[in-house]
Design a protein around this nucleic acid. Structure first.
Lengths: 225, 225
DNA sequence: GACAGACTCAAACAGTCGTTTGATACTCCC
DNA sequence: GGGAGTATCAAACGACTGTTTGAGTCTGTC
């Protein structure tokens, strides 16, 4: 049962780190599916194929396990979104435009959330964390929301200098709101795939959102001059 | 302890219906705050100042109590939103415009949710119901989302005949997404009232959303022609 | 081979959960 | 006044919760 892996490392991947990893994976799925309170330690340890006491032995309690699950995913998602903004603004071959920026960000925002099961788990975890906070209150806001809003806002204002900073921020909120809602719609309709729903598939919604938002921003930018 | 109320009615408001009402009120608050599983029958009956067994006596169980709590609020919210659409389209004195329709609907959508504590409870209840469904899966969609989307879509298309039905529906989704997100932003920022946040108060966000959405719709309507 | 340390395990602890039970008070009608 | 029906109550039931405990099993080092 030991399944040792040969590595010439000072921290060998022995049964201990394997149990830790299995606990992180299993609890991420169960926390996303049932919430912090709804996912019992017994369920988690059974899904991870280890003993009931392992959670307390390896993490010192259910709460610490939950925190490590969240921390593990936060960085990569933020990096993907910030990278999309930088990439759209710094690519050499084409002049950056509002529509290209919005498209790049929209895809970088939605794709990880809807394409991978880890993304779907993340949305669930965040929704639950907002309803029943288990972590410091504004950690998600400080670590995730604000950096992304600022990056997109700055990029947008570089492309639309006539847009005031306040209106720019409101426009960013308008876009994020549409994207969050698209994720929710996509989740609700992905179960029932009627032919009519194909007209409102994810690529179609991305196209619409980019054109809708770019049109509004350009009108507001011309008004504000 | 009986607190009988004198009414010449065949169903007198006796201690029984008072207990039922207190249970509905108390459990609505606790379900919204802690969720269906998180709100224990002991908490509910203590908040309602009645015995532990009252929930099972009056409602036949915790689940039935929860269902009655939800049913009690659904109709009035839907009526308010549908009434705003009809009101904007049928008022005699002024010609209905896209911007007036959007403003009327936006205010009717947001005001009940953010102004009353019952509205804030409702948002919590719906968010929790979507994460941990206790009721038939698409009841909320059938009873609430679809009627409102259809009414707003039809009204919008009457004002913009050049807009295709598909794009109209996508525009409705764009608006609803912004409104849902505004409610969330409002809830997050209403605790910390820094002066900077006053620039993004609710009326300012309503104004922005109406102008932003109307601008986009008019551009899309002119393109589609 | 013996010891130390890391890891796993079944069992138990103390607490909460929703629901049931049987007794007790109360109102109304005959 | 007495029985029927309704409402409330404390108490208990069985199941589940997170955590602790102490014995047991491994690996690596001396």
């Amino acid at each position: 049962m030991q399944m040792q892996v040969e590595v010439d490392n000072e921290t060998p991947i022995d049964s201990s780190t394997q149990t830790r990893q299995r606990l992180l994976d299993a609890s991420e799925a169960l926390f996303a599916e049932r919430g912090f309170r709804g996912a019992s330690v017994r369920d988690i340890t059974q899904a991870a194929a280890c003993n009931l006491a392992s959670v307390n032995y390896h993490f010192g309690g259910k709460s610490n396990l939950y925190r490590e699950v969240i921390m593990r995913r936060l960085t990569e998602l933020r990096a993907g979104r910030l990278g999309a903004v930088d990439g759209a603004m710094q690519r050499a071959e084409t002049e950056p435009t509002v529509e290209l920026l919005l498209r790049s960000f929209t895809i970088a925002f939605l794709e990880p959330l809807v394409q991978s099961s880890a993304g779907r788990r993340w949305v669930n975890l965040m929704s639950r964390e907002m309803l029943d906070p288990q972590l410091p209150r504004d950690m998600f806001r400080t670590e995730m929301v604000l950096p992304i809003h600022q990056a997109l806002g700055h990029a947008l204002q570089r492309l639309c200098p006539r847009l005031s900073p306040e209106v720019t921020e409101l426009c960013v909120d308008s876009l994020i709101g549409q994207l969050v809602y698209i994720e929710r719609l996509h989740r609700c309709t992905e179960l029932s795939t009627t032919p009519a729903d194909l007209l409102f598939s994810l690529p179609a919604r991305v196209d619409h959102t980019v054109r809708f938002t770019a049109a509004a921003i350009e009108v507001l930018a011309s008004e504000k001059g």
